[in-house]
Structure formats: structure tokens, C-alpha cells
Amino acid sequence: MASEAFPASRGVKRYAFGWQSFLASNEVGLLAVIAVFALVFAYANPGFTSPFNLYALSRVLAIDVVIGFSMMVVLVTGGLNLAVGSIAVSAVMVGGYLMQVAGLPIPLAVVLAIAFGTLLGWINGFLTVRMRVHSFIVTLATMSIFFGAMILATQADAFNELPRAFIGFGKERVFGFVSILLFVALAVWLGLMVVFHLTGLGRELLAAGASPAAARISGLRVDRATIICHSLSGGLATLAGLMLTMRNGAALPSMAGHIGSDWLLPAFLAPVLGGTLLTGGVVSVTGTLLGATLVTVLTNGLLQLQIGEFWVQLFLGLVLLLAVTLNSLRRAFTWRPHRAAS
């Protein structure tokens, strides 16, 4: 739609906000779907709302949210990071070593582990920028390299005598039924909201992802943006890995499956359900949070209904397929993305 109908200048609104578009937004839709499922599950199975189940749910949710964020920040650039799981395991094993063997104080070990994960992410970003190939192939290679190196270094042995304080933190409850880990995830959510909505850097990252050519010509440093996003992804993946370690009670080389590939589905599900575009430049931080919530509620509810855990994966695959198809339908009705020649 052309906008000639609007008078110039005086009529230009500084912010675009309308109740209609707000109610039709992805986030509100997701919230409604989550509410419906939660009600159905609560009705079908009273155990769903038991404090213990809510605690378990919030703990899993916290981890899935952060995994989703770790992929989301790379999707911003129009790239992706297959190595999230692999980075997480590698950095967690470093953290495990620092805590259990080197005996470093917990906060220091956690910070060093996250720094290590950030470094691995930086390597991904650096290689992507330098080799001028899609991050798919770079992270495909590094997921194998990081995982292989981790297995070689640890000989596939777990660190299962982690300090009690570390494991204990993951078991803390707030109000009796909310895992403290959920507050960690919410803190990350808040941080990313600030970055993507209130800072110049966030705007630059989005611009670089939406159209690298236009951003570069306008004097933005696109390569730097790519590297920042990958580094951030590595750090967030590590945080998720540490949270999972607290839940498991040990640093396990197998926690993300073979070469970390078990994380791929949850990592993509949350941001894609939340409305983050795979083509880059559009992000929904809250959407990712809600996307992860939907996935966790569905998984938890289905398991509670005694549907075999193996069918849940099939179900999540269908959800992903449905979500991307709906997104593409919606886009087809509103606008067609401009394909920049690479």
C-alpha cells in the first residue's frame, strides 16, 4: 500500500502503535495458544498444576528459553549456529573441570566457562566473516571439531562431583513452585530486550542482518555485527549448558547428544515460533520466550497424559512445520521479502 493518502510531516506519528496490530501480533497469539493448552492440560490432568510439576516445568522452560535465545541472536544476522549444543557441552566441561578438579570458586568458574563458550562463538563468527561462506557450513564443521576436541580431552568422562553449592543453586525454588533458573532466564530476556530495543548496537545488529549490503554502504560495520552475534550465541549456549548441568547434577559429555545435535530442534523451535525471521533482521525476544514456553508446556502436558515420550519429538516436528508454514502464508499476504543477491 502506498501512503500518499497521508499528509506530510504534521501527521507523521513518532511511534506506530495500534490495538488492532497489537492483538493480531505473534506474541499475543502465542500467549492465547499457551493459555488454551495450559487450561486443557490442567483440566485433563490435575497433576499438571501440582507444585512439583510446575517446578519441573519451570526448570525445563528456563533452559529451553536460553537455548532458544542462543540461536535467536544468530538468526538476527540471517545466519545460524548449528554448534550451539557442541559449544555448550565443550564449555560446560571446561567449567566442570575448573570447579571439580582445579577447585576454582564457583562464580569464577562459571564466568570462565561462559567466556570460553563466547570464545568458541567468536571463532564461528570470525571464520564466517573471513571465509565469506554461510555460517551453516562453518558451524557444521565447528560443531564436529568442538565436540571431537571435547571428547578427546575428557575421554567422554563426566564431572559428577561438582560442588554442592553449584548443583544446589539449580534446585532452589521461589514461592515453592518456581525454579530459580527461570529467573536467570528472565534476566537474560530483560537483557536482550534492552539490547535489541534500546541500544544503538542492537539496531546495528538488526540492520546488518536485514540487509548487509545496505548496512555496509550506510557505514555500519557488518562483519563486526556478525562476530558479536556469534560470540553472544556461544555465551548464551554455555549459560543454558550450565543450567542443564545444575539440573543433571553433573557435567555430562552426552548432555546434548551426538555432536550436540539434540539441541537443534529446541534451539530453532523457540525463535521460529516466536516470529524471528530466518532471513535475518527481524527479532522477537518476547516471542522466543513465549515460543519456548509453548514447546515446554506442550511437551510436559503430553508426557503427563501418558503419551509415549517418543511421540513428543514427532509432535514437535509437526509444530515446527506448522509454524513456519503459517508464517510463510502470513508473509505472503502481507509482503514479499526482497531477495538480495549474494
Partner: peptide
Amino acid sequence: AEGLILIHGVGRNIAMTIWS
């Protein structure tokens, strides 16, 4: 392809050069 970021708003397109 180079002048605008089509999927971003007018305000951001203009402010792109001065965020820093």
C-alpha cells in the same frame, strides 16, 4: 538492495547512519 532496509521502519532507515 543498498539504499534501504526494506523490512525496517522509516525512522530506523534514516537514523541508521547516526546510531553511534
